[in-house]
Amino acid sequence: MSKPKVAVSWNSSCGGCDESIVDLEEKILDVAEAVEFVLWPCAMDFKYEQIEALPDEDITVSLINGAIQNTDQEHVVKLLRRKSKIVIAFGSCACYGGVPSLLNLKNLDDSFRVSYTNSPTVINEQGTVPSADSEDDGHALSLPSVYKSVRKLDDVIDVDYFLPGCPPTASMIASALTALLEGKLPERKSVLASNKSLCSSCSRNDSKPETVSIKNLVRIHEVKADPGLCFLAQGIICMGPATRDGCDYPCIKGNMPCTGCLGPFDRTDQGAKMTGTLGGLLEAGDEEAAKKMADGIVDPAGTFYRYSVAASLLGGKREGEENE
C-alpha cells in the first residue's frame, strides 16, 4: 500500500506553523517514514506542477496555514482543495484570520501610505507604490493584487477540520496526525482540540474569581504579576475564559496572561464571550467607576479579537467587497 500523501502549504502567515511541525523533533523522522510529503515549500524543493499533475483527491491531507490575502493564495488553496481528500485549516490565521486580520480594522490604502510614503525613513518624492503591473527599463513586471480584507481559509474553500493555535503545539499536531493515520478523526468540520475553556486546565484556576470582585483593571507592564495567582484576580485581563483549551497554557507558565490564540469555542464569538465574562466580574459601583474601568481596557478590539477578527462580526469579509 502506498503511503498517505501530505502537503504543507502557507499563505499570509509567519512560518511559525511550519516551525511547530519541525518541533515534532525526532517524531518528524517517524512522520517522514509514515507519509510521503508532496509539498513543503519552506523545507523542500517540491513543485506546483507535480500537484497539478496528481489525480483529484490524491493527496490524503493538506495542512494549510496562513490567512488568505491575495489572488495567488486563493489560486493555490483552491488547487490543493481539488487535489486533497482532507483539508485541515492549520493554525489560527487559517482558522480565524489570526494577527494579520487585525488589518481588517484599518484601511488598506492607509497601510500602503504608512509603508511607502509616510514612513520616517522612506525617500519617495514621486510617491511610488508597488503595483500589479509596472515596467522597469523596458521590462514588464507584475505583482499579485492584495485583497482589501484578510480572510480565513473557509471563506475561500471548503475546510474539513480546524487545528487552531498560534501556532498549534507540537503535541496538538502529533495528536491530529495520529488520529488521521489511524482513521480516528472525529466528525467533519470539527475543531481538533478540546471545547472547554483554557481555565479548565490552568494551574491557577483555583484562584479564579467567580463573582463581582475586580475593583481595578491594570496592564501587564504596570505591575509585577504574582506567579501563582489567577491573572483576573490580579485585575489583569487574561483571555482564558473565552479561549479554547489545548495548548497546556505555556504563556501562563511564562507568567504572562493568555492572549487568546486558540480562538473561541464552538459557535461562540470570542470577544462577546470575554466581554460577558468581564461584565460579571468587574465591580463598577457607579457610572464614574464603570467609565474608569472601561478606560482601563485601552484596546478592546485588539485585546478580545487578537487572533479572530476575520471570524468575528467586527472584521469579517465585508459585504459587496470586490476580490481585487
Binding site: L103, D110, S119, D136, L143, I220, D299
Partner: peptide, 21 residues
C-alpha cells in the same frame, strides 16, 4: 529581478494597540 509579492501591513494595524503588547 528578485520580486517580493506581498505586504501584510503590520506598521498600520499596530496603531491603537497597547505598546506593551
Amino acid at each position: 529581478y528578485l520580486q517580493i509579492p506581498e505586504i501584510r501591513g503590520f506598521e498600520k494595524f499596530v496603531e491603537g494597540r497597547p505598546a506593551e503588547e
